[in-house]
Design a protein around this nucleic acid. Sequence first.
DNA 1: CATTTTTGCTACGATTTCAGTAGCAAGAAC
DNA 2: GTTCTTGCTACTGAAATCGTAGCAAAAATG
Lengths: 114, 114
Amino acid sequence: MTKPQKPAPRPGRRVRGSATGRPVMVLLDLLGRRWVLRILWELRDEPLTFRALQTACGGLSPSVLNTRLAELRDSLIVEQRPDEGYALTRQGRELLTQLAPLTAWSEKWAKSLD
Amino acid sequence: MTKPQKPAPRPGRRVRGSATGRPVMVLLDLLGRRWVLRILWELRDEPLTFRALQTACGGLSPSVLNTRLAELRDSLIVEQRPDEGYALTRQGRELLTQLAPLTAWSEKWAKSLD
DNA sequence: CATTTTTGCTACGATTTCAGTAGCAAGAAC
DNA sequence: GTTCTTGCTACTGAAATCGTAGCAAAAATG
């Protein structure tokens, strides 16, 4: 037995809390899974090997990492390159661009919480 | 007993996978929790009551909703207004502005997955 | 008033997910 | 060969989430 492998959420299919499967809902479901945002974040600059990615994420368990990577590959956001490890696809990079302003926001936010 | 209430993650404190507590890491931890993105999304246009919010999110369990709302209030992203229910704070609205382009991205993404 | 609804929320057992460690097969380095 | 590193699977216990039930307070209704 290799794996029952649960498929990643996809637009058009019903997802958690949304029967319609509207793309943005599906995306929110996917991004809302534990470690996903962080993984993408760590890949923002350069490809990382499985092990490097694991370390970058503070040593999350390989099982979870592998599950998330499978979902992200399935969603064409991340790809695996021979000899380079895991990297964002072109799409994935675009997505991350959208998320980039979060850094600036988070700095202001941090101050407001003091 | 009222509440054991685990505190929301805060910049400066160590969070999941980040000993440093850099604001962006903390934010990713917070946003990466289940339903958080969706909840913010549903609040994008107008305040919603607890019940309305629950329905909007496809009937998620009130316990989780309440936990998430507590975290978001604690983080000054969401606030509770008398007679209006839950609403984004000014900060929260700014955050959501950053996230708005996700809709457009998700449409393109959906097509690429067909 | 008295009654029915609605609302915000808590309790709690059942599931699902995650964490954390151990370890293995395959390839590269020595 | 032997030792490392890498990608990944297996497994168990802990934690998060689900889903339903239900209750007290406020609001709407008659």
